[in-house]
Simulated scan of single mutants.
Amino acid sequence: MNTTNPHPGANIIPIHGKTPVIHESAFIAPGATIIGDVEIGAGSSIWYNCVVRADVFTIRIGERTNVQDGSILHCDPPRPGDEEGSPLVIGDDVLIGHMAMVHGCTIHDRGFVGLGAIAMNKAVIASDAMLAAGAMLTERKVMGERELWAGRPAKRLKELSDAAIAGMRVGVAHYAENAKHHSEAVAAALG
């Protein structure tokens, strides 16, 4: 893990004695801001103009996960009546679409958050589950494996097909490869 800023144009900001820990193979795009008690795993990518703000509690992002342009990630601290708080925990091979808001929830390996979707404190997105574009997963709602949820508030629509699951895995591979190209392009442009 690397605690320096090898990501030209990105804002890596320590706060309250906590410095983001970003694996050297992760891509952090210019304009992205990573603050505080954040850990980002190998091969993950945080795209242009995202904010990952762990100023009050922890954010953990696994390997090969991508957080697409303009998304906002935050958490809530422990407090009276909520001693465990709401850390944000994101597993491996997760897809988070453009302009999503992900706050104090858990997304298991291979979970998917669609464009502009919202996932709130203590909600859970299970492995191979999809929160549809524009959906709002309200506090403490738990999605099962391979489920598609949509709407505001989000409700279960159906079980995902094998083809849909395969499509999500293709998306993960695409973003991992595309991040390498962007990393090279940024290095060349900003040196």
Rank of each mutant, 00 (worst) to 15 (best):
G151A: 15
M130A: 11
G151M: 14
K155L: 15
V102C: 06
I15T: 14
V124E: 09
A123W: 06
S183Y: 09
A32I: 06
R146D: 07
G43F: 03
N121H: 06
F57T: 03
I28S: 05
I107C: 00
I22Q: 02
M120L: 12
V186G: 13
A133I: 02
A119E: 07
R79Q: 15
V52M: 01
E84T: 11
K155R: 14
A10C: 05
I90G: 00
H174Y: 12
V113N: 02
M99C: 14
P153I: 12
I118Q: 04
I12W: 01
A166C: 05
E63Y: 11
H181R: 09
N2Q: 13
G41S: 04
H103E: 08
I107R: 00
G116I: 00
L137Q: 04
G134A: 05
R60T: 09
L88S: 01
V172I: 10
A42K: 06
G191F: 09
P8L: 04
H103P: 02
V52P: 00
I13M: 04
E177D: 15
A173C: 14
H182M: 10
A187K: 07
F57M: 11
E39P: 08
G70D: 10
H174K: 09
M120F: 06
E177R: 10
N49G: 14
I96D: 03
H174C: 10
I96W: 09
K18Y: 12
I35S: 00
A26M: 01
H103M: 01
E177F: 10
G151Y: 08
I72W: 05
I61L: 11
I96T: 08
E24K: 13
N5H: 06
K155T: 11
E84S: 13
G104E: 08
G114M: 05
L157T: 05
S127T: 13
V124N: 08
H182F: 07
E145G: 07
D109V: 03
A135L: 14
R60Y: 03
H181P: 07
M101Y: 09
S44H: 02
G171V: 06
N11G: 12
G9Q: 03
V124A: 01
A29K: 00
G191R: 04
G9A: 06
L88T: 02
M130N: 03
I46D: 05
I28V: 10
V172N: 05
S127R: 12
T138Y: 13
D37K: 10
F27A: 11
M120V: 09
V142K: 14
V52E: 01
Y48D: 15
I40P: 05
M136I: 15
A135F: 07
V21T: 14
E84R: 11
P14S: 07
V102R: 01
H74Q: 01
R140K: 13
G31D: 06
I96L: 04
S86E: 10
R140A: 13
K141C: 09
N11W: 15
V142S: 13
G144T: 09
P77T: 14
